[in-house]
Structure formats: C-alpha cells, structure tokens
Amino acid sequence: MSEKKESVWAGFKAFLTRGNVVDLAVAVVIGAAFTNIVNAVVKGIINPLVGAFGTKNLDSYSSCLKGPCEGTGDAATGVRILWGSVLGATLQFLITAAVVYFLMVLPMAKYLARVEARRKAKEGTQEVVEITELEVLKEIRDSLVAQRGPGGAER
C-alpha cells in the first residue's frame, strides 16, 4: 500500500513538473491579471469614447424585441436584447487577443524562428566540416595508393 501511494505521488509530481502544466499555470495567472488591465482600458478609454456618441456605458445599449420594454431586472416587461453588453465583451476580447498576439505570440514566434535558423546554420557547418574531412581522407587514401605505384598492395 505504501508503494502505491509513493507511485501515485511520484506520478503526480511528474505531472506537475511537466513543462506544459507549468506553462498553462503561468498562462492562467497572467491571463487573470491581464483581464483587469483590459477591463480598465475598456471602462476608462473605450466606454468614454463610445460615450461621446451616446451613453457612457455600453451595457445600457439595448433593443426591445417584443412588447414594451419597461423596467429593469426581474421587473422588466417585454423581451430586451442587451447588445451593448455583447459589444463590450467583444471589444474586451479583441483588445485582449490583439495585445496577447502582438506582445507575446509574435515576438516569441520571431525568437523561435531565429533560434531554429541558428540551429540549422550550425548543422549546415557541421555537415560541411564532415564532408571536408571525408574528402581529405579520400585524398590521403588516393595519394597513398599512388605512392605504392602500379604494383598494387605490397607488404
């Protein structure tokens, strides 16, 4: 029973230390912190810009689909479509996606491309060195055969 607990613990430890899990945990923490920044940008910049053309809060934009739309919350009558809330959430998503792409994904892709190019260049030089060494060895062999003369292998 003790061995089983140790193997379960060892498996769990291996799972936690696996790179993907750690990367995912970091991404979740950064994403949660980043959400606050995006919300502040939308509430502090986007909503006032929208407010220049209408109300200051996107959540207040709505359309009445059926019946007279009076009241708010549970006391509301009619069918109200809150398209302002959807627009605000969409803007938050687009801002988040743009910042993540331009500040994280794109620079990382460029960095990985440079690392891969360096690796390929290094492999290419190693192949050239190996081919050159092989050619030198062939030349040495050919010159030794030439020194022996037409008689073939003498010992």
Score class of each variant (00 low, 15 high):
33 A>H: 04
75 A>H: 07
90 T>V: 15
122 K>P: 00
22 V>L: 15
17 T>Q: 11
64 C>R: 01
72 T>P: 00
107 P>I: 08
99 V>P: 01
22 V>A: 12
36 N>M: 11
135 E>Y: 03
53 F>M: 08
141 R>M: 07
13 K>C: 05
140 I>T: 11
7 S>Q: 14
4 K>Y: 07
68 P>C: 09
76 A>D: 02
16 L>N: 13
129 V>K: 13
66 K>C: 02
65 L>E: 06
41 V>M: 09
87 L>Q: 00
117 A>R: 14
142 D>E: 15
81 I>Y: 13
148 R>G: 05
152 G>W: 08
2 S>I: 08
133 E>T: 08
11 G>Q: 10
122 K>T: 11
8 V>S: 03
56 K>Y: 04
17 T>M: 13
81 I>Q: 08
114 R>T: 11
129 V>W: 06
87 L>R: 00
145 V>H: 04
99 V>G: 04
143 S>G: 00
54 G>K: 06
17 T>V: 04
77 T>G: 07
85 S>E: 07
84 G>F: 05
82 L>K: 06
95 I>Q: 03
131 I>Y: 06
62 S>M: 02
42 V>S: 03
139 E>P: 00
46 I>A: 10
9 W>G: 04
76 A>I: 03
90 T>C: 10
121 A>Q: 13
155 R>F: 15
125 T>I: 11
153 A>T: 11
91 L>Q: 03
28 V>G: 01
120 K>I: 11
20 N>F: 13
151 G>M: 10
137 L>S: 06
59 D>V: 04
116 E>K: 15
47 N>Y: 00
124 G>L: 08
89 A>T: 10
115 V>M: 11
6 E>T: 05
33 A>V: 08
13 K>W: 13
24 L>K: 07
139 E>W: 05
120 K>Y: 06
70 E>F: 02
124 G>C: 01
91 L>D: 02
74 D>I: 08
43 K>V: 06
31 G>Y: 03
117 A>Y: 07
35 T>H: 11
85 S>R: 12
32 A>V: 14
138 K>Q: 14
22 V>Y: 09
35 T>N: 10
91 L>V: 14
26 V>K: 11
87 L>N: 00
69 C>F: 01
99 V>A: 11
55 T>I: 00
